[in-house]
Design a binder for these strands. Structure first.
Length: 539
DNA sequence: CAGGGTTCAT
DNA sequence: ATGAACC
């Protein structure tokens, strides 16, 4: 017998604001907003009560609400850290760690196993006396091993809101499992609030999409359960654009397909197209979706309109699959400026790698294989499109014997600038509004082989090459740079490349190995920056 | 739209 | 490897 899943969706309320309040509790009492560049990306509920809107221009908001306090949220590190902490904390409560993270502020929990285990306990309670009153509560166990860990769980009432306001026909089978799910959701949210100090909104249903939508229907600091028998009614009143995974493009494609030949026929309002799930379901069919969106997307979105979401909870791995840092500008047109931005971004990128890819011992958990540089040209019609180029990531970034500064120098000159050169092509003239540096293809580091260095404790007096050799162990890369001397202290770096493990083809790199992306002239590494400044002034 | 992610298709 | 689309 196939039973449905029990999925909980959690969403931290006004997340960036909550983090700010966490560090500065004074903020709790006042209306404030977090801004990034010119835009308010979120505001607390005090501000929302006044009428401050998300995605409002921050100057506009200030004009309208002169007392609104603005907090700069362009540095995401604290949000990222808090997000990770809440994620781990929550995951520790879910058997099998079945928790998927979506962005910084949302989690999906697959609690099916926990529910079924406790349903079995409940069934056992009924066994001894066939004619007795049904039990009204059970002790919900949060641990398989430790019977005393858990909470008291009513079984004939629902915790929180009902998505359509009505109770299901019965409290048996899958419905009962969702009832338990609602109490589990409440318990988990309480733990998060009590121990971590963050409020959340929760949704409970049989799949991720329904759970997420249920949770979004009552905020903040509330939860909602959506029973499958009400799913269609619940969905039908929504605009399809408000269904998760259906964005502007998909919505537009779907409506275009529906209204393509019909002109203004069937428009509920003159000039407007009815985009409710109900209307779309009745105006379209699965084939229309597949024809316009393609087989796989068409199938998926059509299912969504009917409350069907096959995608299970994909536990988010501890290690990110990519790390990227970006910044945006009004306009960037000179190589020297690009160079400076890339330098700054590279520092942040290295920091992120140290935080997210190293364990508490300072050992690398994963090694990115690829470096990718992305940018967004200005003016070119379509707004969001990025272009990127990638290349293998120099392994000097994993070196512990080099200063951050020297690694950044190397990255910018040997990695990002050449990629940038590739990006802008022959024209050598550009106007960009975004730069993004990323490391991707992160390979899990091989399990640490018996580590000789650990026998010697702190390895203070090794020379650099020894240190680096030790560090190189187990690097899953084909091209390993071995660095001779201290790049940080010398004007000209000397790099030796080991082509492969067995082939020690060592060559000393030409000191005059840099070529200017503008004029192509070759010059010494350290001269490049000055040279580009020359171009800058010359123009 | 900001800044950072993921997943999917090609 | 790259880009579209989603959060």
């Amino acid at each position: 017998m196939l039973r449905s899943s029990v999925i909980i969706a959690l969403d931290w309320d006004a997340f960036y604001c909550s983090v700010e309040e966490h560090f500065n509790p004074e903020l709790k009492k006042i209306a404030f907003a977090v801004k990034q560049k010119g835009i308010i990306c979120t505001c607390n509920y005090v501000a929302r009560a006044l009428g401050v809107k998300k995605l409002q221009l921050h100057m506009e908001a200030l004009k309208q609400f002169p007392d609104l306090v603005i907090v700069n949220g362009e540095d995401l590190s604290r949000y990222r850290d808090a997000s990770k902490e809440l994620w781990y904390f929550t995951r520790d409560m879910v058997w099998g760690g079945k928790v998927e993270r979506l962005g910084f502020d949302e989690l999906f929990l697959d609690v099916t196993e926990m529910i079924d285990f406790n349903i079995a306990l409940l069934d056992n309670l009924h066994v001894p006396r066939a004619s007795s009153q049904p039990v009204s509560s059970l002790f919900f166990r949060m641990s398989k091993d430790e019977p005393s860990v858990g909470f008291s769980c009513p079984v004939s009432s629902v915790a929180g809101n009902l998505a359509t306001g009505s109770l299901p026909g019965d409290f048996r089978g899958d419905n009962l499992r969702l009832v338990l799910g609602s109490h589990l959701c409440h318990y988990i949210r309480s733990q998060i609030l009590d121990l971590k100090g963050y409020t959340s909104s929760g949704g409970v249903s049989i799949n991720k999409t329904l759970a997420k939508m249920a949770g979004a229907s009552h905020k903040p600091n509330q939860q909602t359960v959506l029973f499958p028998e009400f799913a269609q009614d619940f969905l039908d009143t929504y605009d399809i654009g408000r269904i998760p995974w259906i964005g502007h493009k998909s919505k537009s494609i779907i409506l275009d397909a529906i209204y393509k030949a019909t002109d203004n026929v069937n428009h509920t309002v003159e000039g407007e197209r009815d985009a409710t799930v109900f209307n779309v379901r009745h105006m379209a069919n699965k084939q229309l979706f597949i024809n316009s969106l393609g087989q796989s997307s068409g199938d998926k979105l059509w299912d969504l309109l009917h409350g069907v979401d096959q995608t299970g909870v994909q536990p988010t791995p501890d290690m990110p699959t990519q790390i990227s840092i970006e910044d945006t500008f009004k306009s960037l047109t000179s190589v020297i400026e690009v160079h400076n931005v890339l330098r700054r971004l590279s520092y942040s990128l290295l920091d992120r790698m140290y935080i997210d890819l190293k364990d508490s011992n300072g050992d690398w958990l994963g090694h990115p294989q690829t470096a990718r540089l992305s940018t967004r040209p200005r003016s070119t019609g379509f707004y969001g499109s990025r272009i990127s180029r990638s290349d293998s990531l120099p392994s000097i970034v994993f070196s512990s014997s080099h200063s951050r500064g020297s690694i950044v120098d190397y990255l910018v000159d040997r990695c990002w600038m050449p990629l940038f050169s590739k990006l802008i092509g022959d024209a050598k003239i550009f106007d960009i509004v975004l730069l993004n540096v990323a490391v991707v293809n992160i390979e899990k580091s091989p399990a640490k082989s018996s580590d000789i260095t650990s026998f010697f404790g702190k390895k203070k007096h090794m020379d650099n090459s020894q240190l680096y050799d030790v560090h190189r162990e187990g690097l899953p890369v084909t091209k390993r740079a071995k660095v001779v001397g201290d790049y940080a202290d010398s004007e000209v770096a000397h790099f030796e490349f080991l082509e492969d493990d067995d082939e020690d083809v060592i060559f000393e790199e030409d000191s005059y190995n840099e070529s200017c992306v503008v004029c192509g002239q070759r010059m010494m590494n350290f001269a490049l920056e000055a040279h580009m400044r020359f171009h800058e002034l010359g123009d």
